[in-house]
Simulated assay, not measured.
Amino acid sequence: MKAIGFKTSLPITEADSFIAFETETPKPTGKNLLVKIDAISVNPVDFKIRQNSAKDTVLDTPKIIGWDAIGTVEAVGENSTLFKPGDQVFYAGDITKPGSNATHQMIDERIVGKAPKKVSAIQAAAMPLTALTAWEILFDRIRISATKDKNKSILIIGGAGGVGSIAIQLAKKVAGLTVLATASREESANWCKQMGADHIVNHKDLINEIHNAGFKHVDYILDFVDTNSYWDIMVELIKPQGHIASITGSSNPIALNKLKTKSVSFSWELMYTRSMFETEDMIEQHHILNKIADLLDNKTITSTLNHTLQGFTVDNLKQAHQMLESGKTIGKIVIEY
C-alpha cells in the first residue's frame, strides 16, 4: 500500500518533511478492521507530532500520522462483530498506532462509526476527531444535560477552529445552550455565526466583550486555544460553581487554587484517552460517531469542511500542514483520494 510519512522532524518547507513510500498492507486480527481510505482530514495534532516526534533523530521506518478518515471496510478480524466488508465507516484513530495518511489502515472497530449516508465523503471526513473531542468535552467531561442545563451560557475560546466549529453546533443544537464564541477577524466571526453562535466576542478584550454582550459570568468555558494565556481571564469570567474544560495542555503549572472560592470544576479532554488506555468504555467512541453520523444525516449539524485538496500526494499533505501551521484556518481541511 502507499503511505506518506517522515523519518525526521523537519520544517514543512523542507523537501523530505514528508515522503511517499510503499509498505505492506496490514492483515486485521482480533477486533481490528482493514479500511481502504477514501479521504482524510488534517488537525493541529498532525503538525505538532510531525514537528516534535522525530527531533534530532532519523527513524528507520517512516512514521505514518493522520487521525481522521472515511473509507470502506475490506477485511475484519476474527473477533469483529460491529462491521463487515463493504461497510462505509469513519473514525479518528489511535495516536499510538500508524495513522491514516495511507491508502489502507488497520483500526480497532470500537473507535469506528458508521459513515453518514446523506453527506459526501469529504464532508464526513472532516468530522471524526473534532466531533469526538467536542462531544466528550461537553457531555463526558462537563456532563452537560440538554434537559437540566438548557439555555445556560457557554464561552467557546477558538470558535472558528476545527473543534470550535463543531462544539458551537453541539452546544447550541444538541445541548440547547446560549453560545458565545471568540473570533477577531470578519471571516472567522461570520463562520462562527454560520455554525450557530449567539454572540461573537473578540478574544483581544475578552472580559469587556463578555460584559458588553450582557453577561457578568458564564456557566461553562471551553478553551481550544491556550490554557495558560487565558487562565486568569477564565477564572474571572466563570460563574461560581461553573466548569472550565480545555484540550490545549499547559506549558506551565495552572493555578487551580484560583478556582477554589468559586468552587469551580476543571477538566482536561484528550480524544485519544479511550484508545490509548483501552478503557472499559472504549466502545463509547463507536456510539458517539454513530450519533454524529445521524446528526449529520438529519441535518441537525453540518459538516465543518471548509477547504478540499484533490489527491493523496506529498504536495497536498505539505500544503495542508502549512495552512494549519499559519494558525488562521477556519473549519477543516480535507484531502480527497
Score class of each variant (00 low, 15 high):
V201Q: 04
V58H: 08
S153L: 03
A126N: 09
I64K: 01
H243W: 12
L82H: 06
L317P: 00
V179F: 06
T25Y: 04
G311Y: 11
V163T: 11
A92H: 13
D294C: 01
A126K: 11
I330L: 09
I65Q: 04
A124P: 13
H217T: 15
D16F: 08
M195N: 04
W191K: 04
R110I: 02
F277E: 05
N290C: 09
L10M: 06
N101L: 08
D56S: 12
H203L: 05
I292L: 05
K152F: 05
S41I: 12
N43M: 06
L222T: 04
T130Q: 07
N52K: 10
V45I: 15
I12W: 05
G327P: 02
D294K: 12
A189P: 04
A126E: 07
A39I: 08
R185A: 12
K216W: 02
F266L: 09
S80A: 15
S265T: 09
Y91S: 13
N32V: 06
F21V: 04
I19L: 13
Q105N: 14
R141D: 12
K193I: 04
L34R: 08
L33F: 11
S246G: 10
D38M: 05
D108T: 09
I244D: 02
T178L: 05
D108H: 10
I254K: 01
N190L: 13
H211V: 07
I247D: 07
G331D: 02
P11E: 08
W135Q: 03
I292V: 15
Q123C: 07
N306S: 14
D315M: 03
E24S: 13
I49S: 04
T8R: 15
I4V: 15
H286R: 00
I49H: 09
E280V: 07
P28A: 05
L289N: 05
I122P: 00
P98C: 10
E24N: 12
M1A: 15
I221R: 00
S100D: 10
A20H: 00
W268N: 12
D56I: 02
H211F: 05
T103Q: 14
P44N: 03
K84V: 13
G93M: 06
E236G: 02
T29Q: 15
E78I: 04
I238E: 00
E109P: 14
T72R: 02
H321P: 01
D94K: 01
E24F: 06
D87R: 03
F6W: 11
G331E: 01
I137E: 05
E187Q: 14
P116N: 10
L256E: 06
S153H: 07
K258L: 14
T182A: 05
L34A: 09
T29Y: 10
G5R: 04
P116Q: 12
S41K: 10
V35A: 01
T227Q: 07
I144L: 10
Q285V: 00
G113H: 09
K204C: 00
K31R: 15
T300R: 00
G93K: 05
E74G: 07
G196R: 01
A115Y: 09
F266S: 06
T147G: 06
V201G: 03
A115V: 06
I40H: 07
G158Q: 08
H217G: 03
T147N: 13
K204G: 00
A54Y: 10
K27V: 15
I168Q: 03
V76Y: 10
K258C: 06
D38N: 13
K332I: 10
T61V: 14
Q322M: 09
K27W: 01
A146P: 12
